[in-house]
Design a binder for these strands. Structure first.
Length: 467
RNA sequence: GACCCCAUCGUCUAGUGGUUAGGACACCGGCCUUUCACGCCGGCAACACGGGUUCGAAUCCCGUUGGGGUCGCCA
């Protein structure tokens, strides 16, 4: 049977890390098996669901490179179908009207809590005749869940999980206003969409037992379930905004590459022997549910950053320049960036990208190449350019002016011979030179910088710094 | 509180009855070197605890502890 999966976020905020990983696992699993991956927006909570959130989720998935098949299903548009199923369940005796008021239920829960009893609907309308209904109370429809025996879920990640039916309660399927609840909607949609594998967060494991009885009541076949462990914060507690439960867009803004994020998320809760660096093609080839671990994993920004450094080094130079362009523009503003600047940056990328771990770092380390003179000096660089160093640079300048064949090799030869003539170690000359040319004490190889900058710009910066 | 899930280096993980318990990130040394990175070499570091089962347990069973999740007319 062909695999059909779905990612079903509720649009009440951005696409956070946990959701992104759930989407990724679904997508990888589906692509691995050559199935269909669908996107369903669970916007039945009309108050909390927003259009910007829907867009943020779609943007997040697109950035991640997770694409879906078929049109997006909006759960809110299927309310009538959901209500119809509730009525069918009612007609078949698998559901019943409950006339308990919200106040009554709150009181019931409070009493249960006080007495230390399980907090759960007590089934007070389960066997009562609707003719006993109090006047003026619109009823909800509740599932008539079994009270004896046990419910067993064969979870593809968690294994066999069983719970005694006495622990199940009669959940609300249709609200008093006639709108369906999430518990009903998911089941109906998963069935109608032909979902074969429900891969979602562990927080839904308990729901699976209850949802199973909706499937059963309708005579529908149960999908396979795979409940993946949640992602925790660095301290082991639930991942919160404080930790990094940010939207994936925040990571994009911090300068992370989507392929790095994909690799990181993949390895968080899934493993394949000793393989660490796994690109998307390889991930699709390898990914399956049996490799998913059962324990929660902590989010580790440092490891993400390391992976990002790896993928930056692998990234194509032109693409990197495109990605840092907006950052760069902001850094050199109001000075505009030219086409020539772009070419220069592309050529400079190999030396730059091995030294940066994020695009933001890359942008700031690249800026000196395209900044207008006079170059701003950072504190260490300024300090380095003492009178002695300036004199050295003044003496060096004439040795460079005569070079017609301005190459890295030639520049290196001239600087080295100059240092030798001065009786100085190369570093004594190279560091002031670096400060003058880059405004910093760290940079790519200084001869590479000279070659890329060109003779006139190099000389001009030298003069600026020696003044 | 009830129910469910989980437990190997600091972190992510490999390991499915017999291994010097492996890899990666981080950290600490060293090499390379004009700086910083990259790269390479080396080091530190774990089976939560207690009982079983077994000739033998990180691996199987039970319990304890710890962590997490769920108990809405939210999703």
């Amino acid at each position: 049977m062909a695999v059909v999966t779905r990612f079903a976020p509720s649009p009440t905020g951005f696409l956070h890390i946990g959701g992104a990983r759930t989407a990724l696992f679904n997508w990888l699993f589906t692509r691995h098996h050559g199935g269909v991956f669908r996107l369903r927006i669970e916007d039945t909570d009309r108050v909390r669901s927003t259009q910007p959130a829907i867009e943020a989720i779609i943007d997040g998935l697109s950035w991640l490179g997770v694409d879906w098949d078929d049109e997006i299903v909006y759960q809110s548009q299927r309310a009538e179908r959901h209500a119809e199923v509730a009525r069918q369940l009612l007609a078949a005796g698998h559901a019943y009207h409950c006339f308990a008021t919200q106040e009554e239920l709150a009181e019931m829960r409070e009493a249960a809590r006080r007495e230390g009893r399980p907090i759960r609907y007590d089934g007070r309308w389960r066997d009562r005749d609707p003719s006993e209904a109090p006047p003026g109370v619109p009823p909800v429809i509740r599932l008539r869940a079994p009270q004896e025996g046990e419910t067993v879920i064969q979870d593809l990640v968690q294994g066999e999980v069983r719970v005694g039916n006495e622990h199940l309660d009669d959940m609300v399927l249709l609200r008093a206003d006639g709108t369906p609840t999430y518990m009903l909607s998911v089941v109906v949609d998963d069935h109608d969409m032909g979902i074969t594998h429900v891969i979602r967060g562990d927080d839904h494991l308990n729901n699976a037992f209850r949802q199973a009885h909706v499937f059963l009541g309708m005579g529908w076949e149960l999908p396979a379930f795979a409940h993946i462990p949640l992602i925790h914060g660095p301290d082991g507690s639930k991942l919160s905004k404080r930790h990094g439960a940010l939207g994936v867009d925040a990571y994009r803004d911090m300068g992370y590459l989507p392929e790095a994020m994909r690799n990181y998320l993949l390895r968080l809760g899934w493993g394949h022997g000793d393989e660490e660096i796994i690109d998307t093609e390889r991930a699709i080839e390898l990914f399956d549910l049996d490799g998913v671990g059962r324990s929660p994993a902590r989010f580790d920004m440092v490891k993400l950053t390391n992976l990002n450094g790896h993928y930056m080094r692998e990234a194509e130079d032109g693409r990197l320049v495109d990605l840092i362009w907006p950052h760069l523009q902001a850094l050199v503003a109001p000075h505009p960036l030219s086409e020539a600047a772009r070419d220069l940056l592309v050529r400079a990328m190999p030396g730059l990208k091995v030294r940066a771990k994020t695009l933001v770092e890359l942008a700031s380390s690249a800026a000196f190449y395209v900044r207008p003179r006079p170059l701003p000096m950072d504190e260490k660089a300024a300090k380095l350019l003492d009178p002695e160093a300036k004199q050295l640079l003044r003496d060096l300048a004439p040795r460079l002016e005569g070079i017609d064949d301005w190459t890295e090799t030639e520049a290196e030869a001239r600087v080295r011979s100059f240092a030798e003539d001065q009786g100085k170690k190369l570093g004594k000359v190279a560091q002031p030179l670096r400060a003058a040319l880059t405004g910093s004490t760290t940079s790519p190889g200084i001869f590479e910088v000279m070659a890329l900058l060109g003779r006139e710009e190099t000389l001009a910066r030298l003069r600026d710094a020696a003044a």
